[in-house]
Nucleic acid binder design. Sequence first.
DNA 1: CGGGCTCCTGTGAGCGTTCACACTGATCGC
DNA 2: GCGATCAGTGTGAACGCTCACAGGAGCCCG
Lengths: 341, 341
Amino acid sequence: MSLEPAVKRAPVMKDVAKLAGVSYQTVSRVLNGHPNVSASARERVEAAIAALGYRRNPVARSLVTRRSQTVGVLASELGQYGPSHTLLGLEQAARDAGYFVSIASLREVTTPAVQDILGRFADQAVDGIIVIGPHPGLLEALDAIEHSFPVVAATSDPDRPAGAGVDQRLGARLAVRHLVELGHTRIGHLSGPSDWYDAAERVEGWREAMAEAGLAAEVLIEGDWTARRGYEVGLEIAASRPATAMFVANDQMALGLLRGVQESGLAVPRDLSIVGYDDQPEAAYFFPPLTTVRQDFEALGRRCIEALLAAFDEDHAPARSVEPQLVVRSTTAAPPQVVAR
Amino acid sequence: MSLEPAVKRAPVMKDVAKLAGVSYQTVSRVLNGHPNVSASARERVEAAIAALGYRRNPVARSLVTRRSQTVGVLASELGQYGPSHTLLGLEQAARDAGYFVSIASLREVTTPAVQDILGRFADQAVDGIIVIGPHPGLLEALDAIEHSFPVVAATSDPDRPAGAGVDQRLGARLAVRHLVELGHTRIGHLSGPSDWYDAAERVEGWREAMAEAGLAAEVLIEGDWTARRGYEVGLEIAASRPATAMFVANDQMALGLLRGVQESGLAVPRDLSIVGYDDQPEAAYFFPPLTTVRQDFEALGRRCIEALLAAFDEDHAPARSVEPQLVVRSTTAAPPQVVAR
DNA sequence: CGGGCTCCTGTGAGCGTTCACACTGATCGC
DNA sequence: GCGATCAGTGTGAACGCTCACAGGAGCCCG
């Protein structure tokens, strides 16, 4: 007994087997929930596991199974509010499902860079990967590379085979309808970069809702998600007054817009109504508090994991889109004067 | 040739060895940079590796070495601006150093929860772990659990043996000094939660700088990092005017404060000067643009990796703290009237 | 009562790598 | 010219697990 080595190694399957009086194979069967194990053997094994504090070694396991209970997350814009919160929900859901999360962020979206990361993920034997904050370029680069594991994209691209997304068109329509109901007819859109799926979908939603209301979708300005850009656009809008309301594709740009417009002497919402997108916690404390569209990013993260699980086996429902919600605060009101077209 | 199995397996060391006309051990030696390999053998092996597109299997490798080229990141508040950006820098630096990053976020900081995650990390054979956004409670929980790998905390706690942090005291002093130079004497502090190291350090920095200036550090209000809390405090301050300037422990609270104060009829900076902390990109577009202290979180993330590398072997310098910078914008000015004490 | 079935269990091999060791041939000093 | 050293190389065994297979016990049926 005291002849044991001083450094106590972590127990392995053989130790459990010996204590339970069975072979290591039986231990393995118990661990993997195999059916053909007698109740008494199972009990003894479980008792031995508990007594020894045994933990199965996932590295050894994945050497032979070629799977690692790990999902790789490929993120291109983790600094942004949306992606970082999606990651949050993702990680929780993954862990609940017994998966590790390995992340890799992309400095630049080039095929070699994506290839490098995919290679690393493959070496690591990830069971699947999830792409966050995707540009089409990223997905194309992904498609161009052969890979042996399922890929789920957190995107709203409806053409995408596997994925989970927020219904961006719906969100955009909620925003526009709200403005239409207030009496606005000239409703502009400050979009995200056109090479983001989410941005493109919001543009489409804006177009659709305008068409439904019988309005012309004329004022479309492309942004880049930053407050700085919102500010610049705010100055322009204050100067030329092309619209009485702006639907802005994220809260940060809305913040900048708010400031640019107000700095130019316009009042919000008196002279210009603004609807943001995301509902970051700060949006309620903008000046004035921002009317915006809430996206539940953490739910999105959870959906991604569900989608990946569904890709692993058929039992899981795919359940794709998360519904956005309109949150009305104080940046929207009736237009300055009702303009009859 | 055509008798090869249809599903082409990835090449393994033996394949490389055969092609190079050496034993698999020699291949291993080349891969690991062992000295005792002849130049000709090395060349042949390298050529074979390139020809086959061989990649070493890290899973098999870590089964025997008990290391995985992976660092675990334990984060408690990944939703916050600081932690998420620290993660960003961390991930980049880790990948550059050849490490994978596996993340786990904590829903609640309890010893069992920390234990669970540490156990998973241990199973995964991580080489070390990094803790982001640490409360003392988290570090205590960590210390309470025996672990066999180095732990680095992204914290400014000077008592911490291993870690990297932003010099929070310095940041606080920069803020206070700026206000002092403008002529303020009653400078309050809206802090972060007192159980965060960073928050506590900023309080200390505020105290020190006040003492240096011969001022009494009287107005200390505890916050929770949220804009909501900042707003509440703003209302209170507008009502009782306990100070002519507030140093606020993060930009989000500063945003709320700004709004609470302005909604109550005070003008910023005419009636109250405000200095934030973090310099999120949005801070420049607050109304008015926020004077704040910039923290380079991505640099912090890099430092964490450096610190971990230093813990692995002695060659790396520890190089701990990142210097914050004051960014003066438009929320600070001379006090309403100079009050001679 | 023996063949066939089912249920449970154990043995052997292998996953792809590294480590400890043993071996070879050359170089060295004396 | 002999043992000792040394660089360079190969062999066996591990790491901890799962998979494929084989074998033993118990049962039913003819």
